[in-house]
């Protein structure tokens, strides 16, 4: 597969976050292993393969979470982003993981994995284990790792992200906050648009429009245009409908570049599809609508572009297997 032809060298730099990782001495001694350590986020790979690896990693983790739920090994709730992975990897890979800040919502696993690669910490967290990324305190929708945070309150994270952006503006950092079409009903979003514009916050508002809020379709809850919402606040807007992670990443790079250079907020609208249920088994959409959603699955087109996708899949699958095993072996968090 002609992957290098698609990749635009230098367009999407691998984060130095990955380069910070030390290669274990054992790997250096063993000449049969690759020269550089293979990273879970594929920092050593060309762009298309890297974005694909991150997407399939997210997909496999979330499919496994739903399995674990059906096996009674998970409790509480979990919101998967199956179908929306292109947004997560596209936007996160446009960031500087060393300094930029990410705020995500209840549907945060994809964003989290793309930012951190901490699959084991995530699965253990959702399984309520002491080895979880928040020691079993936060669970699925309350994650914290370096400058990544998520919270389960719709819209409430928006002003917090504005504040984070302002606090680190002098360091050239950008904050990204992920919202959904369902969040458009929350007043906090509009207060945040106003505050971000008034104070010049370097914050990128990303709206993932999957046209459904839990079980309620967008046409019953959202008036007017989501794309046009931020412009009257003096906020530059980008919009995209395509579910291609490379295109999303390029667009996000442009948006992030603007936010960083101008010290101004930006509104990035991404039309997407939630292929899975809101949480578990609560999908009431008609079969035809679900079929339309599945037709926009971002994974199959990427497999046409990544020659060794099967090998990448196997690598990610074994990573998830080991993470689940390791999490299951860890003690339950009990305080």
């Amino acid at each position: 597969m002609n992957e290098l032809a698609i990749r635009k060298d230098g367009d999407i730099p691998a984060s130095s976050f990955g380069e910070l990782k030390l290669v274990p001495p054992s790997a250096l001694q063993n000449l049969t292993l690759p020269q550089a350590e293979r990273t879970l986020l594929g920092f050593e790979l060309p762009t298309v393969a890297r974005l694909y690896q991150q997407m399939i990693l997210i997909r496999l983790v979330e499919e496994r979470l739903l399995e674990l739920f059906s096996q009674g090994l998970l409790f509480g709730t979990t919101h998967t982003s199956i179908g929306q992975e292109a947004n997560a990897v596209g936007v996160i890979n446009a960031l500087d993981r060393d300094r930029d800040i990410v705020w995500s919502n209840h549907r945060c696993h994809g964003h989290f994995i793309a930012y951190s690669g901490e699959v084991e910490g995530l699965i253990a967290e959702i399984m309520g284990r002491v080895t979880g990324i928040c020691g079993g305190r936060g669970g699925s929708q309350h994650l914290c790792f370096r400058n990544f945070h998520s919270n389960g309150i719709q819209g409430g994270i928006a002003p917090v992200a504005v504040g984070c952006a302002l606090a680190r503006k002098d360091e050239g950092a950008v904050a990204v906050v992920f919202l959904g079409d369902g969040t458009m009903g929350e007043g906090a979003v509009y207060e945040s648009l106003n505050l971000a514009s008034v104070f010049g916050a370097p914050v990128l508002f990303v709206v993932e429009d999957n046209e459904i809020a839990q079980t309620t379709p967008k046409n019953l809850t959202v008036s007017g245009s989501i794309i046009a919402r931020a412009e009257p606040f003096g906020i530059r807007t980008f919009a995209y409908d395509g579910n291609d992670p490379v295109e999303i990443c390029e667009l996000a790079q442009e948006a992030v570049g603007y936010v960083r250079a101008e010290g101004r907020p930006c509104w990035l609208y991404l039309r997407t599809e939630r292929i899975g249920p809101h949480s578990k088994g609560d999908d009431t959409r008609p079969a035809l609508r679900l079929e339309q959603a599945r037709a926009r699955d971002p994974i199959p087109p990427m497999r046409q572009r990544v020659a060794d996708f099967e090998e990448i899949d196997a690598f990610c699958r074994s990573t998830v297997d080991r993470a689940v095993e390791s999490a299951a072996a860890a003690a339950m968090a009990r305080g």
Partner: peptide, 12 residues
């Protein structure tokens, strides 16, 4: 909004 913004600033 301002309490949220202040919370974000304090966090960072």
């Amino acid at each position: 909004g301002i309490v949220g913004m202040a919370t974000g600033m304090a966090l960072k």
